[in-house]
Design a binder for these strands. Structure first.
Lengths: 227, 227
DNA sequence: TGTAGAATATAAATAATTTATAAAGAATAA
DNA sequence: TTATTCTTTATAAATTATTTATATTCTACA
C-alpha cells in the first residue's frame, strides 16, 4: 500500500487532531499527525502526504514560517485551519502559498468538500488505479482489460468474474463464494456456469488456455488468480 | 493588453458589480459583467475570462445549474459569491466544480487574495478545451464538432452525449450514468433513447457506422469512447 | 502405481436478452 | 406554416447466458 492518500495534520490541539482523525479516516484518508512545526516539517518530508492541514497557532514557531518552509519544496495543497480571523492573517497566509483558509470552529462537511477541491486540482489528469499482471492490465474504474495493450472484449459477467479473482490475487476462492458474489444466492449449485465462464475467460486471457498461469483451478475447492 | 486578465462577474446586484468592478480594476484586472445566468454563459463563451465570479442567487436560473453548464467546457477557476451560508449549499457548490466559496458580505482583500490563489493554481491549465481524436475534433467551448475540418451538424443532445463520452475517453460509462448526466434523474429507464441517439451519432461521426471505432458498445453495461 | 469415480474443461446448440436501425408520430422552434 | 428535433414503436440483428453433451483431468485408495 502506498502513502498516496495520506493527509498530514499539523496542530497542537489534541481535540482538533482527534476530531480530524476520526472525520478523515471515516472518509477513506490515511492520517499522519504532528503537534509542533518542527515535527510537522519532518513528517511532511518523510510521509509525502497528498495534502497538509496546518494550524497557524503552533507553540514552537509562527505558522506562516512553517508554511514558507514547506513551500520551498512541497507542491501539493496546504489548507490553513486557524482561530485567527483577521483579514490580514488570511491574506498573508494565502499569499504565502496556502491553498485555502478555514477559521475555527469549522464545519467538518465543508472542510471535507474543500479537501476534495484541493486534491481534485492538484491531480492534473487523474489516472485510474490499474491492476497489472505481466502483460495483462485490469482497470477497475474504466472497466477495461488489456492484454499487450490490446483491449480485450469481455462480457459484463466475464469482467466481474475476472475482477473478483484478480482483486483476490493468490487467494483461493471457493465455488460457492464466487457464485454468490457474481450470480447471487440462488445460484450456489450452478458450478457448471463457473466452468463454462472460466473456460471462456482463459481462452481470452491466457497465452495458452490449456496451461493457465493466471486462472488456476483448485480441484474440489474453487479457483485462484495467479500464484 | 490582451484579454488574458479578464475576470467575468455574474451577479444580479448592481451594487456588488460596481464594488467588484472598482476593486478588481484597481488591481489590474479587466472586467466583464453579466446580470443573468443566460447572459453569463454567453459572456463566458465569448470573452474567455481567466476566472469567473458567480453569484448563486440569480433571477433567471439556479446558480448551481449555471455552474454545471460552465463546467461542461470552462476549465479555469470559478469562485462562488453568495448570501447562502448553509453548509449544504457550500458543499454542493464545491462538489459541482467551484474552486472557492465566499459568503456575502465579503472582505474585498480576502476576495483578492483568493483570486490570486485561484489564478496561481490555474496557471498551466491548457487554454482552449478542444478534444482531438484522429480527424475528429470536439470544441467544448464553441459547441462545434469537426471531421476532417468539415463542421458536423449535431443537435444539442447529440453534442452533449458525444462530449460526455469523449471527455471520458477509454472509460466505460453505464447507461444509467449517461442518462442521468444528459437527460436527468427521471430518465434512468430510457435506455432506448440512448440507442437511438448513439445510432444517430455513429451515422454522423463514424467512417463506417456499422463498425464503430470511437463509439463502442459494451453490451449489458453501456458505451465507451475510443480505446 | 493403476484404476474407478468424481470433478473439470470445452465445444456446440439453444434460449434469452440486448442492441441497432428505420420510420412514424409528437412536440417545439423559427 | 415549415423544418427540426425529440420520442415512441416495430422489427431485425447481434450478443450473451444457459443448457447439453462429451472428453479430459484429477484424486483417493486398493
Amino acid at each position: 500500500m502506498t502513502n498516496a492518500e495520506t493527509i498530514l495534520i499539523i496542530d497542537d490541539e489534541v481535540q482538533i487532531r482527534r476530531l480530524l482523525e476520526i472525520t478523515l479516516s471515516a472518509n477513506g484518508y490515511k492520517i499522519s499527525e504532528a503537534s509542533t512545526g518542527k515535527d510537522g516539517l519532518i513528517h511532511a518530508a518523510t510521509t509525502h502526504p497528498v495534502l497538509i492541514i496546518l494550524d497557524l497557532g503552533l507553540p514552537d514557531a509562527d505558522g506562516i514560517e512553517i508554511l514558507k518552509k514547506l513551500r520551498e519544496w512541497y507542491l501539493k495543497p496546504i489548507i490553513i485551519l486557524s482561530v485567527r480571523n483577521s483579514e490580514e492573517d488570511i491574506i498573508h497566509a494565502l499569499d504565502n502559498g496556502a491553498n485555502d483558509y478555514l477559521t475555527k470552529p469549522f464545519r467538518t462537511g465543508e472542510l471535507l468538500a474543500r479537501i476534495r477541491v484541493a486534491i481534485r486540482q492538484s491531480q492534473g489528469t487523474s489516472d485510474d488505479p490499474i491492476l497489472t499482471f505481466g502483460s495483462l492490465t485490469i482497470d477497475l474504474a474504466s472497466h477495461t482489460v488489456r492484454k499487450k495493450n490490446e483491449i480485450l472484449k469481455l462480457t459484463s459477467t466475464e469482467f466481474s468474474l475476472l475482477a473478483l479473482l484478480a482483486k483476490n490475487e493468490g487467494r483461493v476462492l471457493t465455488h460457492q463464494f464466487i457464485l454468490k458474489e457474481i450470480w447471487g444466492m440462488g445460484y450456489l449449485e450452478q458450478t457448471q456456469y463457473l466452468r463454462v465462464f472460466m473456460a471462456q475467460l482463459r481462452k481470452k486471457v491466457e497465452d495458452d488456455p490449456a496451461k493457465p498461469t493466471l486462472l488456476n483451478t483448485e480441484s474440489g475447492i474453487g479457483y485462484r488468480f495467479g500464484g
